[in-house]
Amino acid sequence: MQTNLMIHDGTAAACSDVPRTGGVPLAPAGFTWPVCGCGGPLRFFAHLPVEDGVLSVFVCQNDPGMCEFWAAGSGANRVHLFPREGLRPVAVPETGVTVLPVVSAIRTQVVTVDPEDCDEDAEPDAYDLGRAGWRREPGERFGKQREVLGSLGGSPSYLEDDRVPACPSCSVAMEFAAHLEEGADWETAMNLGGQLGYVFVCRPCREGAFLTD
């Protein structure tokens, strides 16, 4: 059983075209910064290059807990799947909670996990096992889980099937794309209420969705 973990890899330039959390979004010409239903700009969370483009994730942080950033389709979050060509930095709004205080570079690491390490009364979960075991030495109770910023591909960790969002354009169930953790440093991390974020995408329609557990 394998999972493709996203690992914190130091800092990155704010406008770099590398996997990262924070910084400035790169988007096609004419893109405007998304706005929440509360009227404030969404906060840019992650720039994730994938095989068929770039996933750009935004979540409302203007008044955490007041807007339903945890629900797909609530208007309090946004996921875009952009083509790789022609991307340019987007002008950041002058007011509102728009960017993270730190840009964190991401490297990917394929980790093989043993289903026997899972609780015998529970279904094996590749992401949960991979994150829990990351850089944990034999006999050590805790590893370096804070270094794990999520994962790419695979299946959504412990998410009920009825929570998988449908594409607003074609009504087909979206494909799971990534997990996103709040961040490596609690002082500068995204505020997701301590929850794990899930990114979904409909590749034919180039639509995306975000929710938390």
Rank of each mutant, 00 (worst) to 15 (best):
E137G: 11
P93F: 00
L180E: 12
V111T: 10
I106L: 10
P124H: 12
F142V: 14
D162L: 01
G73A: 04
E68T: 07
P83H: 11
V59M: 06
L81I: 08
R88G: 10
R107I: 08
P93I: 05
E175L: 06
D161H: 05
M66Y: 06
E181Q: 13
S151V: 02
P89E: 04
W70P: 01
S155E: 15
H80Y: 12
C67A: 12
R78S: 14
P165K: 05
E181M: 11
E120R: 13
A76S: 14
E123T: 12
E140Y: 09
A166Q: 03
Q145L: 00
M190C: 08
E147F: 09
D114I: 04
F176L: 01
L149C: 08
D185I: 06
G133L: 13
R135S: 00
S155P: 00
D63V: 14
V90C: 02
C167I: 05
V148M: 07
R88Y: 06
A72S: 08
V113L: 05
F58S: 02
G73C: 07
P156N: 07
R84V: 05
G73K: 05
E160W: 04
C170V: 04
D162F: 02
I106Y: 01
A105K: 15
A184D: 10
L129A: 14
A72P: 04
A126G: 04
T95Q: 00
R84D: 04
G75I: 09
D161S: 02
E116S: 15
D63A: 15
